[in-house]
Design a protein around this nucleic acid. Structure first.
Lengths: 343, 343
DNA sequence: TTGAAAGCGCTAACAA
DNA sequence: TTGTTAGCGCTTTCAA
């Protein structure tokens, strides 16, 4: 039997119980908002909790009840502001619900990814948020078979049956391209992302659709497959700009590539937007901070994070609700990097 | 008494013990590298662990032994790549030692900061890494009095008695300024960071010292107090560039302000580095990706992270080693944004 | 070198 | 409405 008298350095439920003159089971009830507690008792216990500065021991709670109140998050890296924004969204949502965030960086190593998932699902966290997973196929089945709650962000469309949140990539790209067309551009270059990511494919398709809609012939030479990275954006833009018949506008599939493209334009001695228009995708914080401010497609990154967190918390409460995938709307953010083409 | 026969969904120490034909105490010994286990037994147990895919339950281990094998990390935000780099350093170090990372974003709210620290120190994590804390005074005393292990990164010099890692800000700024002087610049503008941060002050002092050393008069009008943020870097640079007698080179106290400064230079129709040289501080990943590539002072961010992690792990093993503060060397990274002034 | 057993702090089921 | 108690999975004595 346990000995409630032996106090360790930290305040436990026992000290609280003793002080309040109730059993420790009752304290536990108060802690967990069990309705079967007399209001008076509840108040008394709460007061003692305050006085003693008691904080529950999560390890113990989790061991006993199975809940850690920790959410695990797997991200590929933290290089760009992109992931940071998503984390902030998740983070503020979890904060409201009293959950904590455990961060795992996979450094784009698929092995690590699978490892972490296996270990985490083993009890360390209550649920998982997977950001931009590269090979989810490997472990999504495991997760599903264990009924372990998880949500994907900006996934690649693997297995349509799992909960996921992403943005309307196709629509955003369509709007961006259409905007350029409406400004009068006819030769519009596009720099794509990694073509094994759905988001990159969708953006390219949106671009094509907009051209099609406005009866502008699609030209293969205006498409540069790239990598979502700034330096490659720069290189791809250089290729476009040195074409015999270069584009008058460039649509970069994300903002950092747009930054690279802007560098390239300047390097060729041209100006933005007077000579060349540049439009991006994402609207990371930097986009509004550079000069000229970047016109771009806003992806509600923060919002995607909080929606994902909400979905996961829902899933924790009601494990059996059917999994849904949410697409958040993108929106055009018009700043200073685009204008009608010269003459 | 417990019933080893009742297997739950996850493999426990009991299944392993049963399979290996030993008591569960022995399995625990194997797990903890207790030397008092016959090699043969150890091997057998390890084999079973492999076979069954057993993973220890950290909640239980921590409850029993008092260690969670989780390190808590408090960061102000995740906006720039700055913090991301530090995290990667910490992260990879912890990964090696089998520790996990719990991330808390304070969003620059001092109250949150103190709250988190109090709660975390209460048993959720074994140690704490505090990045760029704004008001550590509030809780460092608590931490110290509880003998709770923690390390500061890029602190503000509060209480010289606590473990901390930072970079040689003064020296880095000195070198950057000296480099510009050696290129032939005589009018060098500086854009500072938040002047309530030691790092910002040290950089300004380094700049002054370099001028002094080379007998260049210090001029107050060439100093712009700023905020470490890109947009403010832009504004400050604009002020410098529109001076009656503008500088020929600008030293920005961090890279993102240097980016802002570069925008400002272009905005005034001048070129980098032909008309104006720009030098930064930090060497975040973006610095090498933009055009022209930014010459800057490299702060070993990743390394600062891993050194901090190492210090903390040391502290966990030997709680009584005297706390030390480590300053990591900065280094000049010469790229393309500086050259001698026009005639 | 091993086994047995006492908790770590808590939740939840069962009694009262 | 409250008290009692059996574990959750593990570490760590204490015996053998």
């Amino acid at each position: 039997m346990r000995n409630p008298g032996t106090a360790t350095s930290n305040v436990t439920i026992f000290e609280v119980a003793a002080q309040a003159g109730v059993s420790y089971g009752t304290v536990s009830r108060v802690l967990n908002n069990d309705p079967h507690v007399k209001t008076e008792t509840r108040e008394r216990v709460n007061r003692v909790i305050q006085d003693l500065g008691y904080v529950v021991n999560r390890q113990a709670r989790s061991l006993a009840g199975g809940k850690t109140h920790i959410i695990g998050m797997l991200v590929p890296d933290l290089g760009t502001g992109y992931i940071g924004e998503i984390i902030q969204g998740i983070d503020s949502e979890l904060q409201l619900s009293g959950y904590d965030l455990m961060l795992y960086t996979t450094h784009r190593t698929p092995v690590l990814e699978a490892d972490y998932v296996a270990n985490l699902a083993q009890g360390m966290v209550d649920g998982l948020i997977l950001v931009l997973p590269r090979n989810p196929r490997d472990y999504i089945d495991i997760l599903n078979s264990r009924h372990f709650p998880f949500v994907l962000i900006d996934h690649q469309g693997w297995g349509n049956e799992c909960p996921a949140v992403s943005a309307t990539n196709w629509q955003g790209a369509f709007n961006a391209t259409e905007y350029l067309i409406q400004l009068g551009h006819k030769r519009i270059g596009i720099i794509t992302g990694w073509m094994d990511l759905d988001s990159a494919i969708d953006r390219l398709e949106g671009y094509k659709a907009a051209l099609w809609t406005h009866h502008i012939p699609f030209s293969e030479e205006l498409v540069r497959e790239s990598t979502f990275q700034q330096l490659d954006g720069y290189k791809s833009a250089m290729e476009l700009l040195t074409l015999p018949n270069p584009p008058t506008a460039i649509f970069a599939s994300n903002d950092v590539m747009a930054f690279g493209a802007m560098d390239a334009v300047r390097e060729t001695g041209q100006r933005i937007p007077e000579d060349i228009s540049v439009i991006g995708f994402d609207d990371i914080p930097q986009a509004g901070a550079i000069h000229p401010a970047l016109t771009t497609v806003r992806q509600p990154l923060r919002n995607m994070g909080s929606v994902a967190a909400q979905m996961l918390l829902d899933l924790l409460k009601h494990p059996d609700i059917p999994s849904k995938r949410i697409e958040l709307p993108t929106g055009l953010v018009i700043r200073d990097s685009c204008q009608p083409p010269r003459s």
